[in-house]
Amino acid sequence: MEALFAVLVGFFFAAAIYLMLSRHTVRILLGVALLGNGVNLLLFTTGRLVREVPPIIVAGQETLGTGAANPLPQALILTAIVISFSFFAFLLVLTYRAYQELGTDNSDRMRLSEPSDEPLPPMGY
């Protein structure tokens, strides 16, 4: 079971990275979104998979039952999901604003801070 997850995670990463290697900012954005899910699944799988039993202590018990899922990766992923969402929203707005300001969504044409014909810095003292 976990081996299949490993393969799925591999696909997530490969697709995300292929998208991020694009020159179009929207595709990079889609890549970032996929990457977040890939990372979450990676963490989830590393904590070992258990079917259906959530890490919630049954009333009257002091600790989790034997078949319960590992709570630690879940806690990590839960916050990661929210943070990657806000990051995604920020990137989305950044893409949108960059498109409005620069008139392009091609990252090769975004040369405002690193112009291709930059002059030499001053050579004096």
């Binding site: 959530p54 919630i56 839960l78 916050t79 999901i81 929210v82």
Partner: peptide, 12 residues
């Protein structure tokens, strides 16, 4: 605190 849920989910 005792069942599935919490601040993150509630906020969303």
């Amino acid at each position: 605190h005792n069942e599935p849920g919490g601040g993150f989910i509630g906020g969303l």
